[in-house]
């Protein structure tokens, strides 16, 4: 009896190992993205809007940072090097935080003298929410506190719904949402593309004040076309660079400017494909991995994988219901059996 049971177990384990190996192969090994457990990637929202950030135009003045603070009523970030009792404290954020929704960062190499050079040079990067086409933060939020607008595609946050689980913080591939850990009633903060200003036909704070057009607002397809135009430019060429809204509608028409292309653009347009695409795009003369953006990433969003698993297992709850039926039957039969003293 016990021997045959042992054999049965051995066979069962071997069998299930083989089955699992087969499952492994179909699940993890199939050519991406045609994965057995992957849902369809999400298309760009019909009226998707965003920002095009051109690192070569950025002069690092950080006007966008203070405009962002003002537009969103965000507090100062006082660095540890400033005396706490100094009445002339100033805002010195170095990274996105619960107080800072937008930050200009700089890459440097060697003596850092030449703008937009990888060697002995420096280059700027603007960090803020990229408003992903298929955002992880929205996919993970259990209480619909992170939502993506059906038409504009803007990803926004509702603190009144949020339970503060910080799953969005954990899951965002770009490290964007931030929680305020030093507040008993802390909340999540991230860029919402100044949707309150857009509602009044005003530009997002950053794009509104950018003096060089390095931060340009527009419909994402238009921004992508503009990015393609720029990345095709040759050094030495002169080009026209718009400011504000690329179409001149939001926030009123503004003058652009002519500028000589000093350093060749990278052909890579960040956000065109990364993780299913993002509504905010960047172009640069320095490779994006130098600018601390994840470059070795698939061109589908990670929610396609996790939701793929969930949708397969829990489609209409048919699977769980069927399993429960079987379990109820077995439990009923076996509890009855086991009532008899043995």
């Amino acid at each position: 009896m016990s021997v045959s049971r042992r054999n049965f177990l051995k066979r069962a384990v071997k069998g299930s190992a083989a089955a699992a190996a087969a499952a492994c192969t179909t699940v993890a090994g199939s050519p991406q993205p045609a994965n057995a457990l992957q849902r369809e990637p999400k298309p760009l929202a019909p009226e998707a809007v965003g920002l095009l950030y051109d690192s070569t135009l950025c002069i690092g003045c950080k006007a966008c940072m203070s405009a962002c603070k003002e537009a969103n009523h965000m507090p100062q970030e006082v660095g540890p090097d400033q005396p706490w009792n100094d009445t002339r404290q100033w805002d010195t954020p170095v990274e996105l935080s619960a107080k800072t929704l937008n930050v200009i960062k700089v890459f440097t190499d060697g003596n850092a003298t030449q703008k937009d050079h990888e060697k002995d040079g420096f280059a700027f990067l603007k960090r803020q929410c990229l408003h992903c086409a298929d955002p992880s933060c929205v996919s993970v939020c259990p209480v619909s506190a992170m939502t993506k607008d059906k038409t504009s595609g803007i990803v926004s946050h509702n603190p009144d719904a949020c339970i503060g689980c910080r799953y969005c913080v954990l899951s965002c591939p770009f490290g964007v949402p931030k929680y305020d850990y030093n507040d008993a009633f802390g909340q999540i903060h991230k860029c919402q593309l100044c949707k309150h200003r857009l509602a009044e036909n005003q530009l997002p704070g950053c794009a509104d004040v950018c003096p060089t057009g390095a931060t340009l607002f527009g419909r994402t397809p238009d921004l992508l076309a503009e990015a393609k135009r720029r990345t095709a430019l040759k050094p030495g060429e002169y080009a026209h660079y718009p400011r504000g809204d690329i179409n001149g509608t939001v926030g009123g028409a503004r003058d652009g400017h002519e500028k000589r292309v000093e350093v060749a653009y990278q052909s890579h347009i960040y956000g065109e494909r990364e993780l299913g695409g993002t509504q905010c795009l960047s172009v640069s003369a320095v490779p994006f991995d130098k600018l601390n953006l994840p470059t070795n990433v698939p061109d589908y969003g990670y929610p396609t994988l996790s939701e793929g698993i969930q949708h397969t297992l829990y489609a209409g709850m048919v699977g769980p219901a069927a399993v429960l039926g079987g379990l109820v039957y077995l439990a009923h039969r076996n509890t009855k059996d086991q009532h008899d003293p043995d």
Partner: peptide, 21 residues
């Protein structure tokens, strides 16, 4: 972080069915 909203997890009006959490 926002435990006072915890009950939102049980409320269909807030439910976000794609969330594994």
């Amino acid at each position: 972080g926002r435990y006072w909203n915890f009950y939102h997890m049980m409320m269909p009006s807030y439910a976000q069915p794609n969330s594994v959490m």
